[in-house]
Amino acid sequence: MSDLVRAAELLDGAGALLICAGAGMGVDSGLPDFRGGAGFWRAYPPYARLGLRFEELADPRHFAEDPELAWGFYGHRLELYRRTVPHDGFRLLREFGTRPPHGTRVFTSNVDGQFQAAGFGFVAEAHGSIHHLQCLAGCTDAIWPADMDVVVDEETMRAVPPLPSCPRCGGLARPNILMFGDSSWVPDRSQAQLDELTAWRRTARDLVVVELGAGQAVPTVRRYAELASAASGALIRINPREPEIRHGRGVSIAAGALDTLKQLLPR
């Protein structure tokens, strides 16, 4: 029996569907996955000239030490995600997700808001969202929508003032995203989403987990998918580079998200 057939049989019997997505889910929409220095620098050549890697730029200290550099990176990403159209795999998942009697939820480490743009109603964003802001100085734990525009010089990838500010204290704002070595991220919004997901999982029966584009470098999504499917082994892992599943507890498909979903889900 082929992996696709086994995966289709799992989905046919799903009483509830949990979609777990990493950065690879957005590749078919044209979004970079920032895998390794070379992949990041192909997406952002100015940073190759500066020798800066993704892990170095995604550091909250830059907002205090060099806010134009920090907002140049995140402002460019914000505009990129705003104008990106989710690929057709999102639609296929959303339409299939109406079938399980106990419903569908999404768990993702992505901060791009693509699932919401594709019409999903219940999304747990484990690392926050670029479409929301918080105060850099921590004058408040409030989180608010990023309803401003950031002008970025494409040659230097530095933001042009004025930069986003906190409506309470007037100081600098930062994205409500969990960055590397980040001790000041305000997790309240994401935690409320995770609490709702946990409550739903307690009531969901015959849960099937579909994991898409989640690598091992930042294993947040893979670990959550494995945990959620631990009791049943009903895990479908779709990943072109790292599809292996520990102890064979599920179905692994070594392919991209969009191509696999087109074959797997009914039109």
Rank of each mutant, 00 (worst) to 15 (best):
L17S: 03
A38V: 13
A23V: 09
Y81A: 11
D66V: 07
G26K: 00
A43W: 11
D33T: 10
Y47I: 04
E9C: 09
E56N: 10
W41I: 01
G37E: 15
G15F: 05
S29P: 05
L31A: 07
L69R: 13
D33W: 02
E56T: 12
L10A: 05
Y47M: 12
D33H: 08
R6K: 15
D28N: 12
R77T: 00
D66C: 02
A21C: 08
G72M: 06
L52G: 03
H76I: 03
G22M: 06
Y74P: 02
E9L: 15
L57S: 05
Y47D: 04
S29R: 06
A70Y: 02
L57E: 02
P45W: 02
Y81E: 12
R42L: 13
V5N: 10
V85W: 12
L78I: 08
G15P: 01
R77S: 05
L57Y: 02
G26N: 11
L11W: 08
A48D: 11
F34A: 01
P32F: 01
G26Y: 01
L78K: 07
R77H: 08
M25F: 06
D12M: 11
G36R: 06
I19V: 15
H76E: 15
E9G: 09
G51I: 06
L80F: 12
A8R: 15
A38F: 14
L57I: 14
G75W: 01
A70F: 08
V27S: 14
G75A: 08
V27Q: 10
P67M: 08
